[in-house]
Amino acid sequence: MAKPSFSDEIANLLHAGHGNPLRTCIQCGTCSGTCPVVEYMDHTPRRIIGMIRANLKDEVLASNTYWYCASCYHCTVRCPAQIDIAETMYALKRYSIWKHVHQEGLVGPVFSETFVKTILRSGRSFEPILATSYLFSSGARELIQEAFMGTKMMLKGRMPVLPPRIKRLDNFKRMVSRVIPLEADS
């Protein structure tokens, strides 16, 4: 089989080889017009799709677009060519994490890492630990605001003080090790 282009590589990450859906994009810009976080992105989703199709690998990977995607799936719902754009953003996230090529200083990758680590350790997510992955990237005022909000939530019992754990954590860890052939670090 011929060596796949960058565009095919991304398509391979999407639907495990049911063709390349990005080729059907008509560049109408509905996704970009719909996106609630588009103003924070280096390139709009429409442009990213165009860039993937043009095999502009370095430019695509250097952009923050896919890490800023809020996964609201509005673009996917409205796309007239039925492209799963939010899933494409996830494909780019996977690609950049697996190859360690994403932009430095982004909240997204750190957040994902902390989230999965917390889940693997205790089977549950724990907000106070998760928050620290991005808290310090914002200003002092936001920090105090967040801390205030967190304390209030804890006092009202909306957030646990100690990290919650699931029952039979060993079973869960064994389940994970059946999917990923790596020994747990215990």
């Binding site: 697996w98 190859k99 890492e113 680590k117 693997l120 990923i180 052939p181 790596l182 020994e183 670090d185």
Partner: peptide, 17 residues
């Protein structure tokens, strides 16, 4: 390259699957 790709999640040794 699983350990390199997602090493931060699974720091353990590879198993014989």
């Amino acid at each position: 390259g699983i350990r390199e790709q997602i090493a931060y999640l699974f720091p353990g040794q590879p198993m014989h699957p």
